[in-house]
């Protein structure tokens, strides 16, 4: 039996998860998430981690491997670090065993990953450059329109005539949006327009790493945004040679933490097997 923890330090929130792995069976013992909101992420990571320990009725010494991911390299008590695409890939497979592609939609970057059935990363790519297609931008616009985060998706799917945002720079795009409001374009159509432009970028990202008929699991902060999921579906449907389907999971935000924990257990077992490490108990 291997006990492992995954701690995922993101831009918006810190997530922690603890797993028990025995003979290939993976059991999720505990989880915890804390929003960062201008607090020290390192401290929050420790808090979230302690919370999960408590929920799982474990002590830190009981754990065989503590894996960090995201921006958690600096956490002092970790055993190993996995980079977020590595862990998201594994987390996605855990959440849905058929998900061999992952779209991690975070506040600033989008990441596309293709894996095999074991969660082995076969290819990946991140968005870069200007941020007009980022989650942060969407959040700003929503605030401008007076729309709560959790309402965005619901409104977006009501769009009947989505208006596309043309500008490449997010600041200029913001002005575009202001112009739209003054032209009487409705909030659903504006939001859908942004979703579509984000989705188009992300879909291109998926295609460029060789996604064809995979099931795409959306993870990260925007995973629960129905509007984005729907827009992604539309954009992928338009794409020749791509038959991919998009899905999400209520626990999608934990994908990084789950993946880190499971890779931690995996790595631990390799190390034990190769004699590089002696099992404590």
């Amino acid at each position: 039996m291997t006990l492992s923890a995954g701690i995922d330090v993101g831009t918006g929130a810190v997530k922690a998860a603890i797993f028990k792995v025995e003979d290939g069976r993976e059991e999720w013992l505990a989880r915890s998430t804390l929003r960062i909101r201008q607090r020290d992420p390192m401290q929050l990571a420790e808090e979230a981690f302690n919370e999960t320990l408590e929920k799982a009725s474990l002590r830190i010494d009981d754990l065989d491997y503590i894996a960090t991911t995201g921006e958690g390299e600096a956490i002092p008590f970790h055993t190993g670090h996995f980079y977020s695409m590595t862990s998201h890939a594994r987390g996605a497979i855990y959440l849905n065993e058929n998900a061999t592609a992952v779209l991690d939609c975070g506040a600033l970057h989008g990441r596309a990953i293709v894996t095999d059935k074991r969660g082995k990363v076969l290819g990946y790519k991140m968005t870069s450059q200007c941020a007009s297609g980022s989650g942060q931008f969407l959040e700003n616009i929503a605030r401008y329109l007076g729309i709560a985060q959790d309402e965005i998706g619901k409104l977006s799917v009501q769009a009947d005539e989505p208006e596309t945002v043309s500008s490449i720079c997010a600041v200029l795009a913001e002005t575009d949006v202001i112009n739209m409001v003054s032209r009487g374009i409705t909030a659903p159509n504006i939001l859908k327009g942004i979703h579509l432009s984000m989705a188009s970028r992300l879909a291109r990202l998926l295609k460029s790493i060789g996604v064809t008929d995979n099931l795409v699991m959306v993870t990260g902060g925007l995973a629960l945004d129905k509007g984005l999921i729907a827009a992604l579906g539309e954009e992928l449907a338009k794409m020749k040679g791509v038959e991919a389907e998009v899905t999400s999971h209520p626990d999608s935000i934990y994908a990084g933490a789950i993946g880190a924990a499971l890779w931690g257990a995996f790595r631990y077992e390799i190390l034990v097997a190769s004699g590089q490490l002696l099992k404590a108990s």
Binding site: F82, Y83, S84, M85, T86
Partner: peptide, 12 residues
């Protein structure tokens, strides 16, 4: 992140 993921996948 990108180089790290690359290294991860080669290592794992």
């Amino acid at each position: 992140e990108q180089a790290g993921t690359f290294a991860d996948s080669i290592k794992l």
